[in-house]
Amino acid sequence: MFTAKAGDKLTGSVVSAYGLYYRVQTELGQIQCALRESLRQEAESRHSVVVVGDNVDVELLVDIDPGEELKKKKTYGAIFKIYPRHSKFSRPKRGKEEIEQIVAANIDQMLIISAVKRPQFKMGLIDRFLIAAHQGSLEPIIVLNKIDLEHTLDLNRLEQIYKSINVSMITTSATKKIGLDKFREVLTNKHSIVVGQSGTGKSSLLNAVEKGLKLKVGEISDYSQKGTHTTAAVEMHPLSFGGYVVDTPGLKYLGLWNIEAEDLRYLYPEIAGYSEKCRFRNCLHMSEPGCAVKEAVEEEQIYPERYESYLKITGELQAEESFKK
């Protein structure tokens, strides 16, 4: 291997981001990079200019000798080009003006981790992640963790509910090593992002299938039954059995980017199919007469759990829209 010279161009993938500095996986290894001036000015004025998962071109700022130990806090290059993204996971970032915050890009699938208990199972949060996955061109997979705990969930019914909309569900227990082979199989040779509430066991599951990760694991409060944040930043990790995984901080709530209440019906496939049969074209399937969706729920053609989830999120979106006016 020859010495890489300052001014040489490399292509790589962003594996972590801290402020305006990025670690990029290149043929030389992982190197810390800043942004070319034009991109830096853009990043200071808007969000998500460069995110984890982006494919980028880098210009080296210093020489790198063969076998040189790459230091974490030394800046070796400047990102000057970002390639188009084919997928993304994003959410709104609220402030004076609501903007899109892209968490990660160029991901194949979203693994939505939920616990059967501790913290409390939230179907509405799962459905919000499903919507975000659809919007970002990601394949969603639901992972129900902690199945070793005593619980009251009907796992077979949940599996049937999501199977009806072509979403796979697997069950696991990181502590009892249940379902880990399937979890590893799902991750193999894919670019995955792992999402969910704090305390559902995201880091524990990843540690269980990839011993070298050593991700920090949190505990559940006995008082609140809620988890604590252990993942402080978004980071992409290589997997020894093939593929990459992005671990994300836990979320209690997921805002939906660029979705209005009247458009939500199109993001529930079972509801979208019946919407065309409603008496009114702008039917929101709430209290309108001649609603084919409500009839389908009564006739058990649509699962009531999903319909209730739709109503709840529709109401929340309407409240947000009223607040913005």
Rank of each mutant, 00 (worst) to 15 (best):
T3Q: 10
K5S: 08
L10C: 04
V14L: 02
Y18L: 15
E27M: 07
G29R: 07
L35C: 03
E37I: 10
L39T: 08
E42D: 13
E44H: 13
E44M: 09
R46T: 10
V49I: 12
V49E: 10
V49R: 05
V52P: 03
D57H: 10
V58N: 04
V62K: 15
A78E: 12
F80I: 04
P84G: 02
R85C: 03
R91E: 01
P92D: 05
Q101I: 01
I102Q: 01
A104V: 08
N106D: 01
D108P: 00
M110L: 14
I113C: 08
V116A: 01
R118S: 15
P119L: 01
E139N: 13
L144D: 11
N145T: 09
L149Q: 12
L149A: 06
T152A: 13
N156P: 06
R157H: 15
Q160L: 14
V167Q: 05
V167S: 07
M169S: 15
T172N: 10
A174S: 12
K177C: 10
L187M: 14
H191I: 07
H191L: 11
G196K: 01
Q197H: 14
G201E: 05
S203P: 02
G218L: 00
Y223H: 12
G227E: 02
V234F: 02
G242M: 03
G243S: 07
Y244D: 00
V246L: 03
T248I: 04
T248S: 04
G250R: 00
L251T: 09
Y253H: 14
A261R: 12
G273F: 09
Y274R: 15
S275I: 06
C278D: 11
R279S: 12
R281C: 11
L284V: 13
L284D: 11
H285D: 07
H285W: 11
A292I: 12
V293P: 12
V293H: 08
S309Q: 05
L311Q: 15
I313C: 01
I313Y: 01
G315N: 14
E316P: 03
K324V: 08
